[in-house]
Write a protein that binds this DNA or RNA. Structure first.
Lengths: 249, 249
DNA sequence: CGCAAGGTTGACGGTGTTCAATGTTCGTGG
DNA sequence: CCACGAACATTGAACACCGTCAACCTTGCG
C-alpha cells in the first residue's frame, strides 16, 4: 500500500452531502442511506498526490466529494495519457476488481467518501438501487470517453484546447448557475502538463495554443490559471463541435 | 426509420446460441431465458449497411450474434472517428435512451438478436441478472475505450497499426484456440478507410504503415485483407505496449 | 537572495496529412 | 471472353502541424 496522508474526518451527515443526489447513493432510500452512512469513511488528498498506482491493490471504492482527480496510463517509455477525469459525485474503483488499472492522481485537493470493498459489494447485491445508479453512471462515463476519443483522434490542437476550456466552463456554470449570456470567469483546475496529458499534446503546444486563443480574444487570462470567457458562442465555434446542443445546458 | 433490409429468420433456440454465455443474457436462469426467447427477434444486415444513424430513434436493443459492427461519430466538416467496435456478444443500445448517439454500421455481415425497448427495460427492472451482466459488460467497454484513448493520444501511426492487428489477431486466436507459438493467419474484417477511422489516421497513412510492416517482415500479406503473423512477439514489440500481459491470452 | 516548479517563446525538423496519379480486384454487360 | 467501371488500395511529392530541444521568464517559498 502506498504511503498516503490520510485523515479520518469528523463523520458528516449524508443528508447534508453536496453530492447526495448525484453520486452512486443517489437513489437510495432512508434505510439504505443509514447503512451506507455507517460504512463510509472520508479520506483527504493534497493536490498532486497519488491516490493509487496502476497495479496496486485498491481495497476500497469511493465517491469524489470534493476536488478533481484524474485517471491516467503510462507507457514504458514515459508517454502518458489521461483517460478519465473524476469530478465531484464521480465514482472511483471497479466492483469486482481489486487491482487498480490506472494511476489515480489528485489534481486539486480531493476528499473521498470511501467504502471498503467487501461490504460495498455485498450491499450492491442486496440493494438494486446502488447497482442501478452505478450502471447509469458507467454508461455516462462511456459516453464521455467516446466523446474524448473523437477529440483525441480528430481534433486539432487549437480545437482540443477550446474543447477542454468549454468543458470546464460548462461544468462551472452548471454549478454556479451563471447567467448564460454574460462573460464569466473560473479557474483552470490543472497544470499545463496535466492539460497536455489529457489532450494528447505536449505542454509546449498547450502553452502556445492557450496563448493563441488569448491573442485572438477567444479567452482572457489573469495569471496562468484564471480564465474569462467573453463570448461563449465564440469559444464553441473554436471547439469544432456542432453549434447546437446549446452552451451551458 | 431508415430503410434497411431486414429478414426475420427462423426462430433459433437460445440454448444453441453461440453467445449464450457471453452476452447480456449470460447469467439468466432457465425461466428468464424462456421469457427472453419469447421476446427476441433476429435481424440481418449486409456488410457496409448502416444499422442506425446518430440522432435517429432506436426502438430496440440487441446483442451482436455474428459479424462486426462499428460505432462512429462524424464532425460537421466530415472528419470521422470510430468510437467502438461491436463484436459477437456485445450489446447495442443504451437502456433508457431512445435516440442513438452514434452511427452504427455493419463492417461485415451482421446478425442481431433484438429486443423491443419497452419489454426489455421492464425485464431489467424485475430480473437483476440482466442488469448485473450489463454493468459488467459496460465496465469492460469502458476499459477498452480507455485503452483506445491511449492509442489515439500517444501512439505513432506504426504502433497504432500494429496494435489494431494485434487486437484482431488476439480475438481470432481466442476463438480458434490456436497454438500460441505458430504463425497464424486471419482476415482483416475492415477496409483501410475503416481502419483509418478507428485509428485516427488517414487511409493513406494506414496503407503506408501496413506496407512498412510488411516490408519489415512483421506481417505477411496475401491480397489486401489476409494477414499472416510469423512472430507474435515481434508484432507485440511494435505496438508500444508492455511486453507482458502475454500474447493470445 | 536563490532556487525550484511551472510556464512561455523561438527555431527547427519529423511525422502524418493533403492532393494527385496509378494500380488492383471484381462484378457486369456487350 | 474480354472490356469497362466502381470500389478499394498503393505510392509519390509537397507541405503543415505539432513535437523536440533549448533558452528564458514568472512566481512563490525557504
Amino acid at each position: 500500500m502506498p504511503a498516503t496522508s490520510q485523515a479520518i474526518q469528523i463523520s458528516k451527515d449524508c443528508s447534508d452531502c453536496p453530492i447526495r443526489y448525484r453520486a452512486v447513493c443517489a437513489r437510495c432510500e432512508t434505510d439504505e442511506m443509514e447503512l451506507l452512512e455507517s460504512m463510509k469513511y472520508y479520506r483527504d488528498f493534497e493536490a498532486g498526490q497519488t491516490i493509487v498506482w496502476a497495479g496496486d491493490e485498491l481495497n476500497f471504492v469511493a465517491s469524489v466529494v470534493d476536488g478533481i482527480a484524474s485517471l491516467s496510463q503510462t507507457m514504458e517509455d514515459g508517454r502518458r495519457q489521461m483517460v478519465g477525469l473524476l469530478l465531484p459525485s464521480d465514482f472511483l474503483g471497479r466492483p469486482g476488481r481489486t487491482i487498480a488499472s490506472y494511476d489515480v492522481t489528485a489534481s486539486t485537493a480531493v476528499t473521498l467518501c470511501c467504502f471498503r470493498r467487501g461490504p460495498f459489494e455485498q450491499m450492491m447485491n442486496t440493494t438494486p438501487h446502488i447497482a442501478q445508479r452505478l450502471l447509469e453512471m458507467t454508461l455516462d462515463e462511456l459516453d464521455a470517453a467516446r466523446e474524448w476519443m473523437l477529440l483525441l483522434g480528430r481534433k486539432t490542437a487549437r480545437e482540443k484546447i477550446a474543447s477542454l476550456i468549454a468543458i470546464i466552463a460548462r461544468r462551472n456554470a452548471a454549478i454556479a448557475q451563471h447567467d448564460h449570456r454574460s462573460a464569466f470567469t473560473f479557474e483552470l483546475p490543472m497544470t499545463r502538463e496535466a492539460m497536455a496529458d489529457y489532450l494528447g499534446l505536449t505542454l509546449e503546444t498547450v502553452s502556445r495554443q492557450v496563448s493563441a486563443l488569448k491573442r485572438d480574444g477567444v479567452i482572457e487570462l489573469r495569471g496562468k490559471r484564471e480564465v474569462t470567457i467573453p463570448d461563449f458562442f465564440r469559444l464553441m465555434d473554436e471547439t469544432g463541435d456542432d453549434a447546437d446542443g446549446g452552451p451551458l445546458v
